[in-house]
């Protein structure tokens, strides 16, 4: 449960970061037209920031999630 949720948080955060950076933000490469100045989705950089924060929050999930009845000391 703990590992699963931690992994899920990490994967969601990392995926959001990668997708927002490589797909949703303004294209990479030498700009040849106006399209290079606009993100494919507005506020994609905010999603990147949220993604990075969620990735780091995976550690909090791992540590703060209460122990289940069986595994409690």
């Amino acid at each position: 449960m703990r590992i699963g949720l931690t992994a899920l948080t990490f994967v969601i955060g990392a995926a959001l970061s990668l997708v927002s950076y490589f797909v949703l933000a303004a294209p990479l490469g030498t700009p040849t037209n106006e399209g290079f100045s606009n993100p494919n989705l507005e506020f994609a950089p905010l999603l990147f920031v949220i993604g990075m924060s969620v990735t780091v929050l995976a550690v909090v999930v791992y540590e703060v999630l209460p122990d289940s009845e069986q595994s409690a000391d």
């Binding site: 303004a26 040849t32 037209n33 106006e34 290079f36 100045s37 606009n38 993100p39």
Partner: peptide, 8 residues
Amino acid sequence: VGARFKRE
């Protein structure tokens, strides 16, 4: 922020 851009 893409304020400076290249036009076609």
